[in-house]
């Protein structure tokens, strides 16, 4: 199994580096202007108050958009970081096994004495490692940038928010992984359905505080259990994180059950 992890990471080395560069660039651009924005926060909050509550909830979960926690939540952790890491996790989830199967290189691997279970486990651990590397880089860089620009949020809370954003991204990635492991849908459908699960869930979860009947369907989706401003202020109920772990475990078990005995796609 170790060679699968090592060589999968080796194959994705340059992609990992560019994802890290991209996310660092995003965090840098977002936070470097914080001192300027902070100096105009009173004026900006006034303008922000004009926006209807329902619309506000699409891009933040706090009423004070320009406080340290409000800014960090709305600009990085509420949507963008989970979205960026989610795109990475979904594309990985759909391609780790899906691309190998589509290109038929999976036959080269399974022609060796390695079980499908180990192949699947090796690929999923490699995917986990990629998301953790990129997620970890973004969390560390965010914490450093916050210090540099004087954005005062406890480092521990930044780490916790980053960890949960990464966990949320992983829960989206395993959905794509499961759909490709099932074999019938294919990579494109894996990406599409996982993206719909992510974005649909985000919209439902965002609107559910204003539209009461959306509260129940919103509970199916991961964004319902992710509250960045609560995380950044240390008020997050970590029992919510069980949802992410449950989704990840359930999708991996379904992937394993489906993949261990099914026909590989032909060349």
């Amino acid at each position: 199994m170790r060679p699968i992890i090592r060589w999968t990471l080796q194959q994705r080395k340059s992609s990992i580096i560019w994802w890290c560069v991209g996310i660092i660039f995003f965090v840098f651009l977002t936070l470097v202007f914080y001192p300027t924005i902070n100096s105009q926060s009173a004026q900006l909050n006034k303008s922000f108050d004009q926006i209807p509550q329902t619309a506000k909830q699409l891009f933040t979960d706090t009423s004070d958009l320009f406080s340290p926690i409000g800014y960090l939540s709305s600009q990085i952790f509420y949507l963008m970081m989970p979205l960026i890491l989610g795109v990475l996790a979904i594309s990985l989830g759909a391609s780790l096994v899906g691309k190998e199967e589509h290109d038929t290189t999976i036959e080269l691997l399974l022609a060796r004495p390695i079980s499908r279970t180990k192949l699947l486990l090796g690929k999923s651990l490699a995917g986990l490692a990629v998301v953790l590397i990129v997620g970890g880089t973004s969390i560390i860089f965010t914490a450093v940038m916050c210090r540099l620009v004087g954005l005062e949020v406890a480092v521990m809370y930044i780490l916790e928010a980053g960890l949960l954003a990464t966990l949320l991204a992983l829960s989206l990635g395993v959905v794509a992984f499961m759909l490709t492991a099932l074999g019938r849908a294919g990579r494109a459908a894996g990406i599409g359905l996982a993206a719909a699960f992510a974005l649909g869930g985000y919209i439902l979860a965002s609107l559910s505080s204003s539209i009461t009947w959306l509260r129940w369907p919103a509970k199916i989706f991961p964004f319902n259990y992710y509250h960045s401003s609560e995380l950044l202020s240390g008020n997050y109920n970590w029992a919510n994180a069980i949802y992410f772990v449950a989704v990840i475990v359930a999708c991996l078990v379904i992937s394993w059950l489906a993949f261990r005995r099914r026909d590989l796609l032909g060349s």
């Binding site: 060589w7 194959q11 038929t104 290189t105 060796r112 390695i114």
Partner: peptide
Amino acid sequence: KRQVGYLAGEIALYPKMTGRQFLDYMSDLQ
């Protein structure tokens, strides 16, 4: 599979690897 060598008809390899890297990968697996 410990006793079998397999060659596919339309062999698909990893295009970004060199031949040496690919054989190293296969050697790591077996």
